[in-house]
């Protein structure tokens, strides 16, 4: 039998902002992933012109 007594998430409250810690972690992870996608070099991405 599955248990459903999962405790509610903690919330970050600041002025108008109210966000659960898991959601804040996900937003942070997305921003980090976005920045990494912009700055990390792509394998075989050197050189110019058309490539496979």
């Amino acid at each position: 039998m599955m248990s459903h007594d999962i405790p509610p998430a903690r919330f970050i409250e600041h002025s108008w902002l109210s966000i659960s810690v898991p959601n804040a972690i996900m937003v942070g992870a997305l921003i980090v992933l976005f920045i990494l996608a912009l700055v990390l070099p792509f394998p075989g991405g050197e050189g110019s012109g058309e490539q496979r």
Binding site: L36, L38, G44
Partner: peptide, 15 residues
């Protein structure tokens, strides 16, 4: 297509 422009070689184009 068999080829892509050079600027496609970036992680941002993978998503």
């Amino acid at each position: 297509p068999g080829t892509q422009p050079a600027y496609v070689a970036s992680w941002i184009y993978v998503f």
